[in-house]
Amino acid sequence: MSALDTRPGEPPHYSQVWTFRTPRARLALWVGWVALVALFVWCWQLMNENTLWIFVTDAPSQAADIGSRMFPPRLAYLPELLMPLWDTLNIATLGTMGGVILAVPVAFLAARNTTPSALLVRPVALFIIVTSRSINSLIWALLLVAIIGPGLLAGIVAIALRSIGFVGKLLYEAIEETDARQVEAVTATGAARSQVIHYGIVPQVLPAFWGISMFRWDINIRESTILGLVGAGGIGMKLQSSIDTLAWSQVATILIVILGTVVVSETVSARVRQALI
Protein backbone atom coordinates (compact mmCIF):
# COMPACT_ATOMS: atom_id res chain seq x y z
CA MET A 1 0.00 0.00 0.00
CA SER A 2 2.77 2.37 0.88
CA ALA A 3 4.33 1.66 -2.50
CA LEU A 4 1.16 2.88 -4.09
CA ASP A 5 1.12 5.93 -1.88
CA THR A 6 4.51 7.15 -2.96
CA ARG A 7 4.12 7.09 -6.70
CA PRO A 8 3.57 10.62 -7.88
CA GLY A 9 0.66 11.44 -10.13
CA GLU A 10 -1.23 8.28 -9.39
CA PRO A 11 -4.04 7.75 -6.97
CA PRO A 12 -2.75 6.51 -3.62
CA HIS A 13 -5.20 3.63 -3.31
CA TYR A 14 -7.34 1.58 -5.64
CA SER A 15 -10.38 2.61 -3.67
CA GLN A 16 -9.92 6.07 -5.11
CA VAL A 17 -9.96 4.68 -8.61
CA TRP A 18 -13.05 2.61 -8.15
CA THR A 19 -15.92 4.06 -6.23
CA PHE A 20 -19.44 2.78 -6.22
CA ARG A 21 -21.05 6.13 -6.86
CA THR A 22 -19.93 9.46 -8.18
CA PRO A 23 -18.87 11.88 -5.42
CA ARG A 24 -21.87 14.04 -6.08
CA ALA A 25 -24.36 11.19 -5.78
CA ARG A 26 -22.66 10.06 -2.60
CA LEU A 27 -22.94 13.53 -1.15
CA ALA A 28 -26.61 13.72 -2.05
CA LEU A 29 -27.17 10.34 -0.44
CA TRP A 30 -25.44 11.41 2.75
CA VAL A 31 -27.35 14.66 2.92
CA GLY A 32 -30.52 12.65 2.43
CA TRP A 33 -29.72 10.30 5.28
CA VAL A 34 -28.72 13.12 7.64
CA ALA A 35 -31.90 14.98 6.79
CA LEU A 36 -33.93 11.87 7.52
CA VAL A 37 -32.26 11.43 10.92
CA ALA A 38 -32.80 15.10 11.76
CA LEU A 39 -36.44 14.84 10.69
CA PHE A 40 -36.86 11.75 12.81
CA VAL A 41 -35.44 13.43 15.92
CA TRP A 42 -37.56 16.52 15.39
CA CYS A 43 -40.70 14.45 14.92
CA TRP A 44 -39.90 12.38 17.95
CA GLN A 45 -39.66 15.45 20.15
CA LEU A 46 -42.78 17.01 18.71
CA MET A 47 -44.73 13.80 19.18
CA ASN A 48 -43.66 13.21 22.76
CA GLU A 49 -44.23 16.76 24.01
CA ASN A 50 -47.22 15.59 26.00
CA THR A 51 -46.18 12.03 26.68
CA LEU A 52 -46.24 11.15 30.36
CA TRP A 53 -43.18 8.98 30.77
CA ILE A 54 -44.42 7.63 34.10
CA PHE A 55 -47.06 5.68 32.22
CA VAL A 56 -44.47 4.42 29.76
CA THR A 57 -42.10 3.17 32.44
CA ASP A 58 -45.07 1.63 34.18
CA ALA A 59 -46.03 -0.30 31.04
CA PRO A 60 -44.32 -3.63 31.80
CA SER A 61 -46.22 -4.05 35.04
CA GLN A 62 -49.46 -3.03 33.27
CA ALA A 63 -48.75 -5.59 30.58
CA ALA A 64 -48.10 -8.29 33.14
CA ASP A 65 -51.31 -7.37 34.90
CA ILE A 66 -53.44 -7.51 31.73
CA GLY A 67 -51.71 -10.70 30.65
CA SER A 68 -52.49 -12.44 33.91
CA ARG A 69 -56.14 -11.33 33.73
CA MET A 70 -56.48 -12.57 30.16
CA PHE A 71 -55.27 -16.03 31.00
CA PRO A 72 -57.02 -18.41 31.01
CA PRO A 73 -59.52 -17.24 28.34
CA ARG A 74 -63.11 -17.61 29.45
CA LEU A 75 -64.34 -20.32 27.09
CA ALA A 76 -67.81 -20.35 28.62
CA TYR A 77 -68.29 -17.06 26.83
CA LEU A 78 -68.08 -18.76 23.42
CA PRO A 79 -71.83 -19.50 22.90
CA GLU A 80 -72.63 -15.83 23.36
CA LEU A 81 -70.27 -15.04 20.49
CA LEU A 82 -72.02 -17.15 17.85
CA MET A 83 -74.71 -14.63 16.89
CA PRO A 84 -72.27 -11.70 16.72
CA LEU A 85 -69.97 -13.87 14.60
CA TRP A 86 -72.83 -14.60 12.19
CA ASP A 87 -73.51 -10.86 12.07
CA THR A 88 -69.86 -10.20 11.34
CA LEU A 89 -69.89 -12.66 8.44
CA ASN A 90 -73.01 -10.98 7.09
CA ILE A 91 -71.49 -7.53 7.37
CA ALA A 92 -68.47 -8.67 5.41
CA THR A 93 -70.36 -10.66 2.77
CA LEU A 94 -73.25 -8.27 2.14
CA GLY A 95 -70.86 -5.33 2.33
CA THR A 96 -68.56 -6.92 -0.23
CA MET A 97 -71.49 -7.64 -2.55
CA GLY A 98 -72.74 -4.08 -2.29
CA GLY A 99 -69.28 -2.64 -2.74
CA VAL A 100 -68.54 -4.78 -5.77
CA ILE A 101 -71.85 -3.90 -7.42
CA LEU A 102 -71.12 -0.21 -6.94
CA ALA A 103 -67.46 -0.56 -7.93
CA VAL A 104 -68.07 -2.11 -11.35
CA PRO A 105 -69.61 0.96 -13.03
CA VAL A 106 -67.06 3.21 -11.31
CA ALA A 107 -64.23 1.07 -12.68
CA PHE A 108 -65.59 1.20 -16.22
CA LEU A 109 -65.96 4.96 -15.94
CA ALA A 110 -62.41 5.28 -14.62
CA ALA A 111 -60.60 3.06 -17.11
CA ARG A 112 -59.05 5.02 -19.95
CA ASN A 113 -60.27 2.63 -22.61
CA THR A 114 -63.91 2.49 -21.50
CA THR A 115 -64.62 5.89 -19.98
CA PRO A 116 -67.19 7.92 -21.91
CA SER A 117 -65.18 11.07 -21.29
CA ALA A 118 -61.57 11.22 -20.16
CA LEU A 119 -61.92 14.90 -19.36
CA LEU A 120 -65.15 14.99 -17.37
CA VAL A 121 -66.18 11.55 -16.17
CA ARG A 122 -62.83 9.94 -15.50
CA PRO A 123 -61.65 12.45 -12.85
CA VAL A 124 -64.96 12.10 -11.01
CA ALA A 125 -64.65 8.30 -10.99
CA LEU A 126 -61.03 8.52 -9.86
CA PHE A 127 -62.02 10.91 -7.09
CA ILE A 128 -64.67 8.47 -5.86
CA ILE A 129 -62.02 5.75 -5.81
CA VAL A 130 -59.46 7.87 -3.96
CA THR A 131 -62.01 9.07 -1.41
CA SER A 132 -63.19 5.58 -0.69
CA ARG A 133 -59.65 4.25 -0.44
CA SER A 134 -58.27 7.01 1.76
CA ILE A 135 -60.87 6.56 4.45
CA ASN A 136 -60.64 3.44 6.56
CA SER A 137 -63.75 1.33 6.98
CA LEU A 138 -63.73 2.10 10.69
CA ILE A 139 -64.05 5.81 9.94
CA TRP A 140 -66.80 5.12 7.44
CA ALA A 141 -68.50 3.13 10.20
CA LEU A 142 -68.01 5.96 12.68
CA LEU A 143 -69.71 8.35 10.27
CA LEU A 144 -72.51 5.96 9.39
CA VAL A 145 -73.28 5.11 12.98
CA ALA A 146 -73.68 8.82 13.59
CA ILE A 147 -75.87 9.17 10.51
CA ILE A 148 -78.08 6.04 10.40
CA GLY A 149 -77.62 4.82 13.93
CA PRO A 150 -75.78 1.86 15.40
CA GLY A 151 -76.32 -1.61 13.98
CA LEU A 152 -75.53 -4.00 11.19
CA LEU A 153 -76.68 -1.70 8.43
CA ALA A 154 -74.05 0.91 9.29
CA GLY A 155 -71.41 -1.82 9.20
CA ILE A 156 -72.56 -3.16 5.84
CA VAL A 157 -72.66 0.26 4.26
CA ALA A 158 -69.25 1.12 5.73
CA ILE A 159 -67.69 -2.04 4.31
CA ALA A 160 -69.38 -1.40 0.96
CA LEU A 161 -68.18 2.19 0.77
CA ARG A 162 -64.62 1.19 1.60
CA SER A 163 -64.69 -1.68 -0.91
CA ILE A 164 -65.66 0.57 -3.84
CA GLY A 165 -62.22 2.16 -3.91
CA PHE A 166 -60.26 -1.05 -3.54
CA VAL A 167 -62.23 -3.08 -6.06
CA GLY A 168 -62.66 -0.09 -8.36
CA LYS A 169 -58.95 0.63 -8.50
CA LEU A 170 -57.82 -2.93 -9.15
CA LEU A 171 -60.63 -3.52 -11.61
CA TYR A 172 -60.00 -0.39 -13.66
CA GLU A 173 -56.33 -1.30 -13.85
CA ALA A 174 -57.34 -4.74 -15.11
CA ILE A 175 -59.62 -3.13 -17.68
CA GLU A 176 -56.81 -0.88 -18.88
CA GLU A 177 -54.53 -3.90 -19.24
CA THR A 178 -56.89 -5.83 -21.49
CA ASP A 179 -55.67 -6.84 -24.92
CA ALA A 180 -56.66 -3.96 -27.19
CA ARG A 181 -56.60 -6.15 -30.30
CA GLN A 182 -59.44 -8.33 -29.04
CA VAL A 183 -61.47 -5.21 -28.36
CA GLU A 184 -60.59 -3.80 -31.79
CA ALA A 185 -61.71 -7.03 -33.43
CA VAL A 186 -65.13 -6.86 -31.78
CA THR A 187 -65.45 -3.17 -32.69
CA ALA A 188 -64.68 -4.02 -36.31
CA THR A 189 -67.75 -6.29 -36.55
CA GLY A 190 -69.96 -3.23 -36.14
CA ALA A 191 -70.89 -4.00 -32.54
CA ALA A 192 -72.37 -1.25 -30.40
CA ARG A 193 -70.34 0.12 -27.50
CA SER A 194 -72.21 -1.94 -24.90
CA GLN A 195 -71.63 -5.07 -26.99
CA VAL A 196 -67.94 -4.29 -27.39
CA ILE A 197 -67.63 -4.05 -23.62
CA HIS A 198 -69.62 -7.21 -23.06
CA TYR A 199 -67.85 -9.34 -25.68
CA GLY A 200 -64.40 -7.76 -25.87
CA ILE A 201 -63.59 -6.59 -22.35
CA VAL A 202 -65.78 -8.48 -19.87
CA PRO A 203 -64.43 -11.96 -20.72
CA GLN A 204 -60.90 -10.66 -20.34
CA VAL A 205 -61.41 -9.09 -16.90
CA LEU A 206 -63.77 -11.69 -15.46
CA PRO A 207 -61.08 -13.79 -13.74
CA ALA A 208 -59.50 -10.65 -12.29
CA PHE A 209 -62.93 -9.53 -11.13
CA TRP A 210 -63.62 -12.71 -9.17
CA GLY A 211 -60.11 -12.75 -7.75
CA ILE A 212 -60.35 -9.14 -6.58
CA SER A 213 -63.80 -9.71 -5.06
CA MET A 214 -62.67 -12.77 -3.11
CA PHE A 215 -59.56 -10.93 -1.98
CA ARG A 216 -61.63 -8.00 -0.77
CA TRP A 217 -64.09 -10.35 0.97
CA ASP A 218 -61.18 -11.80 2.90
CA ILE A 219 -60.00 -8.31 3.94
CA ASN A 220 -63.57 -7.34 4.80
CA ILE A 221 -63.98 -10.29 7.17
CA ARG A 222 -60.92 -8.99 8.97
CA GLU A 223 -62.19 -5.42 9.07
CA SER A 224 -65.76 -6.27 10.02
CA THR A 225 -64.57 -7.96 13.21
CA ILE A 226 -63.68 -4.56 14.66
CA LEU A 227 -66.45 -2.36 13.31
CA GLY A 228 -68.40 -3.06 16.48
CA LEU A 229 -65.93 -0.90 18.37
CA VAL A 230 -67.77 2.13 17.04
CA GLY A 231 -71.20 0.49 17.26
CA ALA A 232 -71.56 -0.94 13.76
CA GLY A 233 -72.51 -4.44 14.85
CA GLY A 234 -70.84 -7.83 14.92
CA ILE A 235 -68.32 -9.38 17.23
CA GLY A 236 -66.56 -6.06 17.76
CA MET A 237 -69.51 -4.93 19.93
CA LYS A 238 -68.73 -7.77 22.32
CA LEU A 239 -65.08 -6.76 22.25
CA GLN A 240 -65.99 -3.20 23.11
CA SER A 241 -68.27 -4.16 26.00
CA SER A 242 -65.72 -6.63 27.39
CA ILE A 243 -63.01 -3.97 27.31
CA ASP A 244 -65.31 -1.43 28.92
CA THR A 245 -66.01 -3.83 31.78
CA LEU A 246 -62.33 -4.80 31.95
CA ALA A 247 -63.29 -8.44 31.37
CA TRP A 248 -59.91 -9.36 29.94
CA SER A 249 -60.53 -13.10 29.93
CA GLN A 250 -63.50 -12.49 27.64
CA VAL A 251 -61.32 -10.25 25.48
CA ALA A 252 -58.90 -13.15 25.11
CA THR A 253 -61.72 -15.47 24.01
CA ILE A 254 -62.92 -12.93 21.45
CA LEU A 255 -59.43 -12.47 20.07
CA ILE A 256 -59.09 -16.23 19.63
CA VAL A 257 -62.39 -16.35 17.76
CA ILE A 258 -61.35 -13.40 15.56
CA LEU A 259 -58.01 -15.02 14.74
CA GLY A 260 -59.72 -18.30 13.90
CA THR A 261 -62.24 -16.57 11.62
CA VAL A 262 -59.50 -14.65 9.85
CA VAL A 263 -57.46 -17.80 9.25
CA VAL A 264 -60.49 -19.67 7.91
CA SER A 265 -61.58 -16.85 5.61
CA GLU A 266 -58.04 -16.45 4.32
CA THR A 267 -57.88 -20.14 3.45
CA VAL A 268 -61.31 -20.11 1.80
CA SER A 269 -60.47 -17.02 -0.23
CA ALA A 270 -57.12 -18.45 -1.33
CA ARG A 271 -58.73 -21.77 -2.34
CA VAL A 272 -61.51 -20.12 -4.31
CA ARG A 273 -59.09 -17.78 -6.05
CA GLN A 274 -56.91 -20.72 -7.02
CA ALA A 275 -59.91 -22.62 -8.37
CA LEU A 276 -60.98 -19.60 -10.42
CA ILE A 277 -57.60 -19.03 -12.04
Partner: peptide, 16 residues
Protein backbone atom coordinates in the same frame (compact mmCIF):
# COMPACT_ATOMS: atom_id res chain seq x y z
CA UNK B 1 -56.85 -1.21 16.17
CA UNK B 2 -56.65 -4.22 18.48
CA UNK B 3 -52.96 -3.69 19.06
CA UNK B 4 -53.75 -0.06 19.79
CA UNK B 5 -56.34 -1.02 22.40
CA UNK B 6 -53.75 -3.06 24.28
CA UNK B 7 -50.97 -0.54 23.92
CA UNK B 8 -53.19 2.30 25.11
CA UNK B 9 -54.10 0.19 28.11
CA UNK B 10 -50.41 -0.32 28.83
CA UNK B 11 -48.83 3.00 27.88
CA UNK B 12 -51.67 5.40 28.47
CA UNK B 13 -53.50 7.63 26.01
CA UNK B 14 -51.63 9.65 23.43
CA UNK B 15 -49.46 9.42 20.37
CA UNK B 16 -46.75 7.32 22.00
Amino acid sequence: IIIAIFLVAMFGFGPF
